[in-house]
Computed example of a mutant assay.
Amino acid sequence: MDIQSAGGSLIRPGQVLADRSAVSVVTRWTRAVSESDGVCVIHLTSGADPWEVAGELREHGFRASPNHVVVGQPLFFGGPASRPFPVRPLSYRPGRARSPVVVSLLDTGVGKHPWWTGSEWYGALGRDDADSTEGAQAGHGTFIAGLILRQAPGVTLTSCRVLNGDGVGDEAHVIRALNRLRERPPHVLNLSFGCHTFDDRPPPLLADALSAFPDTVTVACAGNTAGERPFWPAALPGVVGVGAVDAAQERRAPFSSYGPWVDACARGEWLTSTYLEGGEFGGYAAWSGTSFAAALVAGAVADAARDRPPQEAARMLLDPGEARQIRDLGALVPASL
């Protein structure tokens, strides 16, 4: 998988995202154009700089950006020391009646697991929605699915694989997945991945895609960079950006990103959840990261949205007059996992 780095951001070499109407402006740099699910990718000629081409398109009033690489655990930027560790089986009792809330999970996919094998929502997933079985981040989506279900028993999950087994994807694939979701928008959307941009400005096409879900609560991880540089899409207005606190839920986890753009936080250290079976793992693991803090917040919103609109549920949970505030991390969403 080709990746180019510059300015602390990662992109696909030679690719720019833009509206199709922008193609005529950059014909002298264009080798090919591909378009699917509402996303236009301009493939540049050799030597053309994606940052410069995106900048020129913006000067002409177009919404454009390099095709940024997104990561589920941004280890490229010095992420947490933790990898998944095997643990003993966890008990799970849904307990309550089925919830009307739908939570969409864009990640590495969701793998087979006893907690949901035979459920209606898992049976509806396609082969392309299954979790990756190889790579450093294989099982990432399966782990998140278990966290959400423990926070919000009875919800329906939908899954779309936008990250590979190493937890790597790109903006184009994410936007395509979001565009496909427009027909049946979920109540809550969990995005446990993100990126830095080359200019630290919001990625315009990703922002446009998310703005098409005004009634959905979008929750995204703040990243494991231990810094305050904006991490997208968590830093977008309208997205609930989630940082991580330690296992005691008292202070910021050492790896967590932070800053005024972070809206909420939850435990992100040594969480236990569902995982893939194989090798030393028997279907359960312990793992750390803001990815999993985001899942706890998404689950809490989904549970609160059983009897109220999702946006109202989120405002209630994050109300600064009610929720405990953690410096540079926003409102603490407690978890008893």
Rank of each mutant, 00 (worst) to 15 (best):
Q311C: 12
D129G: 05
P100M: 09
L332S: 01
L125A: 00
D199V: 04
P66G: 13
G8S: 13
Y122C: 00
L337K: 01
D129I: 13
V239W: 07
W51E: 11
L105P: 06
G299F: 06
S24P: 00
P230T: 14
S257A: 15
H60E: 15
L318E: 08
G47Y: 08
A226N: 03
W270I: 02
A226C: 03
V239Y: 09
S257E: 02
M1H: 01
R184E: 12
V39I: 07
P100S: 05
L163S: 00
N179I: 08
R201A: 05
H68K: 10
S24H: 03
W51P: 00
T218H: 07
I42Q: 00
S34L: 09
I326M: 06
H187T: 07
L17S: 05
P202H: 00
C160S: 14
A305G: 05
A300H: 00
L178V: 03
V23I: 14
W270P: 03
R12T: 06
A313Y: 10
L105T: 07
E134V: 09
R267Y: 04
A305H: 06
P74V: 08
A313Q: 07
N67H: 01
D328Q: 15
W116A: 04
R201K: 11
T274C: 15
D129P: 11
S36E: 12
A64I: 01
T290P: 10
V71A: 15
V155A: 03
P202E: 04
F198H: 14
H60V: 14
L106V: 12
A64T: 01
P50E: 05
G241H: 09
W121S: 14
N67I: 01
Q151A: 12
R98V: 15
A235Q: 10
A323K: 05
G123V: 04
S336A: 15
V301W: 08
G118E: 06
Q137G: 02
A302C: 06
G194N: 06
E134H: 12
V39A: 11
L163N: 05
S82M: 09
G8M: 04
C40W: 02
H196V: 00
T133C: 10
A222S: 11
A136Y: 03
V101R: 10
V69C: 07
R201E: 09
P153E: 02
D319H: 12
T45H: 13
V239K: 06
G289C: 02
V87Y: 11
Q4P: 00
A285Q: 01
V219N: 04
D107S: 14
I326T: 06
I144L: 15
L125R: 13
R20C: 00
A222E: 10
K112H: 13
V188K: 13
P186C: 12
G268K: 00
A18C: 07
G79L: 06
G7T: 04
G78P: 10
E312Y: 08
G47K: 12
L178C: 10
W121N: 08
W115G: 08
F213M: 11
G268R: 09
L329T: 07
L191E: 11
G139T: 02
A48I: 13
V69P: 02
A285V: 00
V188I: 11
Q311I: 14
G259I: 01
D215R: 14
A305F: 07
A298N: 03
V242I: 12
R127N: 09
V25F: 12
R251T: 11
P233K: 07
A207D: 15
A209Q: 06
H68S: 05
A300T: 01
I144C: 15
D37L: 03
Q325V: 10
Q249M: 06
A209R: 04
